[in-house]
């Protein structure tokens, strides 16, 4: 109950944030050269001024700015994200089609980064300043410094072109017509390289935080108490240190959720994954502002949802929260 009311309060607190984002984005996009109608006309290969005027009336673009903003927000409340002129479908439909790829990519990358980062961080901290620590910390630094898109390309060269172990891109092999478990497995197979690519930099970050956090907790008074109780080092780490050291890691998931979604734009583009990130890229290139605005809205919702989950988890881990 304590956990839930706390998370609910945090959720309520994110509403003004969401509003701020939407209003800010809407106003920002008003500054963009050209509007949806221009994009549409370009798509159709031109049209006369009369058609343009009719279209603007149709899309409500002839109204004043506050009226347009009001309309926009009111539509959002009803979860109507508008119509994509480029894709010829409602924006919500376009986004929903693209969501599964992004969600699976993010989920897989986050799990990889968190678990591997935690494990390696613990090993490094337990052998601090000895060779396992040096090796892990050096690897972490190199992972951190590697641009993800470049790593993705090099991985394609090595694993797909040279060794031919893994597919170079795509979200499952549609031509094979798999269904059920076979399809899920096929998708997972296609996600191996993208997951590695997106997860690598976050793995480096998690690993570094976990190592520092472990070292910090190991120096705290209650660890000395545990030693004075005659506990062995292994038990001290598993029973006393680990849970305390995980707290900053959990916080980091929330803080990094947005960055990870941003990273997905590039990775999806490298591996030709039909995800939200690639959609964002395409709408920028094609000036499909309605879709872009919809993506911003959905990404913000996604980040808020992740943070909500993180709050729940954190409150479960730490009994001091909300007390």
């Amino acid at each position: 109950m304590r956990v839930f009311s706390l998370a609910a309060r945090r959720l309520a607190a994110s509403l003004p944030t969401l509003l701020l984002i939407l209003v800010g984005m809407f106003l920002l996009l008003q500054l963009a050269p050209g509007d949806t109608v221009d994009a549409l006309l370009a798509q159709m290969g031109g049209g006369d001024a009369g058609v343009a005027r009719d279209l603007r009336v149709f899309y409500g673009l002839d109204l004043s700015l506050p009226a347009q903003l009001g309309n926009y927000l009111w539509r959002l409340v009803r979860l109507d994200l508008g119509f994509s002129a480029i894709y010829g479908k409602p924006v919500a439909t376009v986004i929903l089609e693209r969501l599964p790829a992004t969600l699976s990519l993010m989920g897989a990358s986050l799990s990889l980064a968190f678990c591997a980062g935690m494990g390696l961080g613990v090993i490094a901290a337990r052998h601090v300043n000895r060779w396992p620590d040096t090796l892990i910390s050096t690897l972490g630094l190199i992972f951190y410094a590697t641009p993800s898109f470049w790593f993705g390309l090099m991985a394609i060269v090595l694993f797909s072109v040279q060794l031919q172990w893994l597919p170079a891109g795509g979200f499952g092999d549609v031509a094979m017509g798999y269904t059920g478990w076979r399809r899920a497995l096929d998708i997972a197979w296609h996600l191996v390289l993208p997951t590695l690519t997106l997860g690598l930099i976050f793995l480096a970050i998690y690993l570094r935080i976990m190592r520092a956090s472990m070292l910090e907790v190991l120096s705290l008074d209650f660890v000395r108490t545990a030693r004075a109780k005659g506990l062995r080092e292994g038990r001290i780490v598993t029973r006393h240190v680990l849970r305390n050291a995980l707290l900053p890691m959990v916080t980091l998931i929330g803080l990094q959720a947005g960055t990870m979604l941003g990273g997905a734009v590039v990775v999806e583009s490298v591996f030709a994954l039909p995800g939200l990130g690639r959609l964002a890229y395409e709408s920028v290139v094609q000036r499909d502002l309605n879709t872009l605005l919809g993506i911003v809205f959905v990404s913000a919702l996604l980040v808020i949802a992740v943070n909500f989950a993180v709050d729940l988890l954190y409150a479960r881990l730490d009994p001091r929260i909300g007390a």
């Binding site: 705290l220 008074d221 209650f222 000395r224 108490t225 545990a226 029973r239 006393h240 849970r243 305390n244 881990l317 730490d318 009994p319 001091r320």
Partner: peptide, 8 residues
């Protein structure tokens, strides 16, 4: 204040 594990 700090000698006990806060999460246990």
């Amino acid at each position: 204040m700090t000698a006990l594990n806060p999460l246990m």
